[in-house]
């Protein structure tokens, strides 16, 4: 199990990657700050402050891109510049790949937690139950990492995998109606209610925020089912491609 011990070093490498830090921490902080100042205390139709809705969606939305960290490290270490060096080491590369995934998920959770703390402390955003929010962030980052790895293993060209991960992130945000309202279409509504991880995560946080823990379970379970399906795909594709 020495492979799992490398998680510390992968974590150190990730924490020194200033571009990732900029894109997944600094940019959201700036966006959240600007949005919070602009939206102020205005209330939406449901009585929830619009700022709370927007900020929660933004933080969850950035979790969709967290998987890009994992896919980049897996690609660099197991398919590109460090491939030969790692293959010559006496360790299980599959377990090492799994360790990278774990490190990516933990890193993404840490960034998400910092964002939750920032929004709650500075702008008094209501996240409902903090531990529940943390659980949802964990589910989102796990799903994102697994899906991005499925993309990495499914196509031969890594550039295409990167584009697919962007399509996944931007597509879900688009379908959630964050850029502009989506048309009232049964298919889109069904997708948002049962498949779109962003909407599932937001709904579960919103339900816990307004009604208590028991109401948020269903969407969290749906999110977990998506993770299980994605993990199955990861096993199928990974087995074929992993060195």
């Amino acid at each position: 199990m020495k492979e799992l011990a490398t998680i510390r070093f992968i974590g150190i490498r990730m924490s020194r990657d200033f571009i990732t830090m900029l894109l997944l921490l600094v940019v959201p902080i700036i966006l959240i700050t600007v949005f919070s100042i602009i939206l102020g205390e205005a209330e939406g139709l449901t009585g929830t402050p619009i700022r709370d809705e927007t900020v929660v969606l933004l933080v969850l939305g950035f979790q969709l891109f967290g998987g890009a960290i994992t896919m980049n490290y897996v690609h660099q270490d197991l398919f590109a510049e460090r491939k030969d060096r790692l293959l010559s080491l006496p360790m299980n590369t599959r377990l090492y790949g799994f360790t990278i995934m774990l490190a990516g998920i933990v890193y993404s959770i840490v960034l998400g937690t910092i964002l939750i703390a920032y929004t709650a402390l500075i702008f008094d955003v209501n996240w409902g139950n903090f531990m529940w929010a943390l659980l949802v962030i964990t589910l989102m980052s796990s799903l994102s990492s697994i899906i991005c790895l499925v993309f990495t293993f499914s196509v031969n060209n890594f550039k295409i995998a990167e584009r697919l991960s962007e399509v996944y992130g931007v597509g879900m945000i688009l379908l959630a109606g964050m850029f502009f309202p989506m048309p009232d279409n049964a298919l889109i509504n069904m997708f948002n209610d049962y498949v779109n991880p962003l909407m599932l995560a937001y709904t579960t946080i919103d339900q816990v925020r307004s009604g208590g823990l028991s109401d948020g379970w269903l969407n969290a379970v749906l999110l977990s089912v998506l993770i299980i399906i994605a993990f199955g795909l990861l096993l199928l594709t990974g087995r074929r491609r992993m060195p």
Binding site: I19, L22, L23, V26, V27, I30, L31, V34
Partner: peptide
């Protein structure tokens, strides 16, 4: 790659502000 990724963030901020 660095140029493109950081500029993406700049674009969002420029559009917002």
């Amino acid at each position: 790659e660095s140029s493109f990724l950081i500029f993406m963030a700049v674009i969002v901020l420029m559009a917002l502000l």
